[in-house]
Design a protein around this nucleic acid. Structure first.
Lengths: 145, 145
DNA sequence: GAAGATTGAGCACTCAATCTTC
DNA sequence: GAAGATTGAGTGCTCAATCTTC
């Protein structure tokens, strides 16, 4: 075993705790405002970026680091809520395409102020601009590919 | 709304991604070795630190940032697996006390090499000692109380 | 009434199996 | 056979209601 050194353990422990606290605060803010959970936001954002052509589920899967079945069930609920449109793909008979509806666009727009507020309160408030930049850089080493 | 600035958004996005990737790798390593999930490790560790006196569930709740019912259900499963002993508390008739069994101690000892290995691979490998220390310090600003 | 803890019911997650198309 | 996607069944999470003791 390659034993992790003290500072690695401390960094990981703090990482978990910081993530839990921020995520918990954001979840609570969204729920308190009667809005959908954060996972929905991520998908809505990706689909908005993709524009009118939409996105294939397996692209979302890679972007969001979720297993295939999770995407499948999430898209189901989003379609039930009328936030996306699911069509079968022309170029590949196996595939689907998810496209954001107008309602989906509106929902993402309604979520952002609440999400952003909570993010600022949980993260931004505690860091200077320089520290936030440093943190982003350090985490990128871990999160890249 | 207090809009979060660019660097805050980037830091939070990377934080989520880094956490997901590391957590996923650790989960997979434990499962691959036929061991219990990471939540169990955290509880076993707290109970080992607490020693022969054990810990009250509501203490665990605050330490691990989990809701009460989650602790209740987790302790149920740990007791079923024979890793902890649940007794009713002498000083407070409402309360319980959870105490680590010898099997629980052994299980934690078996989990650590796998956990530590995966942690080193997911986190430590990507950071110098100094960077890990820096990361821990930055995250502490977010995670403190 | 508040604090510690549990529980039934509903919902979401997870795995493995499956289906269709490539 | 591999890739994209779905689904049934089992398990765990979550909420609100509940119970007991303080």
């Amino acid at each position: 075993m390659t034993k992790p050194e003290k500072h690695t353990i401390r960094a990981w422990t703090r990482l978990v705790r910081a993530h839990n606290m921020a995520r918990g605060a954001i979840d609570q803010a969204l729920k308190g405002a009667g809005l959908p959970p954060l996972e929905w936001y991520d998908i809505l954002l990706e689909l908005e970026r993709a524009g009118r052509d939409g996105l294939r589920p397996f692209k979302l899967q890679r972007q969001l680091l979720l297993p295939q079945y999770a995407i499948s069930r999430l898209l189901d609920r989003l379609a039930d809520a009328g936030l996306i449109d699911c069509r079968s793909c022309n170029e590949d008979g196996r595939g689907q395409v998810a496209i954001l509806t107008d309602e989906g666009k509106k929902m993402r727009a309604r979520m952002w102020p609440v999400y952003g507020d909570a993010m600022q309160d949980a993260i931004g408030r505690h860091l200077s601009t320089q520290e936030a930049e440093q943190l982003g850089n350090l985490l990128e080493n871990i999160a890249e590919r």
